[in-house]
């Protein structure tokens, strides 16, 4: 049976729908990513799954337990790391961990092997107050606290938001290692580059799921030719390209613009001459492989989700 089953779940705050009729299944042992911008409904879905919110409609089970009826049993089984820093800043690293261990009816030694690798990095600072840790360290400690009772399913709501790039990479490496031990993990993130680290991802926008698949299958859905374009005046370039007759879409990605054209018949020479006509200089154009972000951008602008 699947570790998490979400069937037609909806939730709205007053008149505003946060989650609209979402259905998803997450297999045991999967590292599953919920990707989407702020306000996509990721956090609401998380709170429903960890029994903090009641869905207006639909049902969901985690590890076979219903999130509404069996919430008491479920609360012993899930590890949950909310979006914001959720430790006690005035308690030391060690005290935070010991507190959460006791609250969940266990001790640090009992489940130490599970957190050993992560906690060993924190051990030199074990007497430091949690509030004085760096962002990356805080995340590691929060992860330890969420893991200390050996949960069956781990829920991480935007664990890498506000954490530097190196710590983010480290964090994902840790998640992968945990996952290799068979821990089902649902993780949400607004960073699309992190999607490729998951087994499968679900793209969310405005409370709905746009697509669910493996990262590579998702990029394979991107069938149209894609070019990276660059010129001296980036702002004018994006304006002109968006007006061009061959353009499907055009977005800025770092120093290059990613240009999707309407058909394979459009060549880079054609684009080049169009830009020369519009007085652009230092033009560089080369075809590229679509990344997961390109796919998401394309999915977001499609009128209907291709689930």
């Amino acid at each position: 049976m699947d570790a998490i089953i979400i069937e037609n779940v909806s939730k709205s705050y007053g008149e505003t729908p946060a989650v609209s009729a979402i259905s998803l299944s997450i297999r045991p042992g999967e590292l599953f990513g919920l990707i989407g911008p702020d306000g996509a409904g990721k956090t609401t879905l998380f709170k429903i799954l960890v029994t903090l919110l009641l869905p207006d409609q639909g049902r969901a089970t985690v590890a076979g337990y219903d999130v509404v009826k069996d919430y008491k049993a479920l609360r012993q089984l899930v590890g949950y790391m909310p979006g914001r820093f959720s430790l006690y800043p005035d308690l030391s690293v060690q005290e935070n961990l010991a507190f959460f261990a006791t609250v969940f009816g266990t001790t640090i030694p009992e489940n130490y092997p599970l957190i050993q690798e992560i906690y060993s990095q924190l051990e030199p600072f074990k007497d430091r107050r949690a509030g004085q840790l760096s962002g990356g360290m805080k995340q590691k400690l929060a992860l330890c606290c969420a893991l200390i009772h050996k949960p069956e399913v781990l829920f991480l709501d935007e664990p890498t938001t506000g954490v530097d790039a190196v710590s983010r990479k480290e964090f994902w490496d840790m998640l992968r290692k945990l996952n290799e031990r068979g821990l089902t993990t649902l993780v949400s993130t607004p960073y699309m580059d992190e999607a490729s680290r998951c087994d499968r991802v679900a793209f969310m926008q405005t409370g709905t799921v746009l697509a669910v698949d493996t990262p590579s299958a998702i990029t394979n859905r991107f069938t149209k030719p894609l070019y990276a374009v660059r010129a001296t005046d980036t702002y004018q370039l994006i304006q002109d390209l968006r007006l061009a007759p061959f353009t499907e879409s055009c977005y800025a990605f770092g120093e290059f613009l990613h240009l999707t054209v309407k058909s394979a018949a459009v060549s880079d020479r054609q684009i080049d001459s169009y830009l020369l006509d519009n007085n652009h200089r230092n033009i560089k154009i080369h075809p590229i492989q679509p990344g997961i972000e390109d796919t998401f951008m394309a999915l977001m602008t499609q009128p209907e989700p291709t689930a």
Partner: peptide, 10 residues
Amino acid sequence: GTLEVLMVSP
């Protein structure tokens, strides 16, 4: 946010 974690605890 610690209250959330406490609520999802036994």
